[in-house]
Amino acid sequence: MTGPRRVHDMGGQDAGSIPTDGHESEPWEKRMDAIRMLCGQRELLRTDEMRRNIEDLGPGVYNELNYYERWCAAISNVLLQKKVISVDELGRKMAEVEKRWTEARKS
């Protein structure tokens, strides 16, 4: 008997050629990486909590997001679950950032 294979657990499956195009880390990706490390050092985020929250995005979202987008979604989820931040605070801050960046683009 076998059970279902979860989306992240991909060893042994068929897949295409290894992609040869790469990109240098973008500033927001480095920021995400640093946030992860800093939260880890403060014991707010463990590797397996992050992994679990990435896996639990489910096949649709997991495949749609790129690597650091998954990190971003998973890390926010952990911090929300632990009451380090709230949905309302994150939503308000995102709206503020978006407004500021949109204005910066216009100027």
């Binding site: 076998t2 059970g3 060893g11 042994g12 397996d48 992994r51 639990d56």
Partner: peptide, 16 residues
């Protein structure tokens, strides 16, 4: 183990 728990585990599927 030939087990398929629904949550977070680190034993890869291909080794079960």
């Amino acid at each position: 183990r030939r087990a398929y728990p629904p949550g977070h585990v680190r034993a890869p599927y291909f080794t079960r």
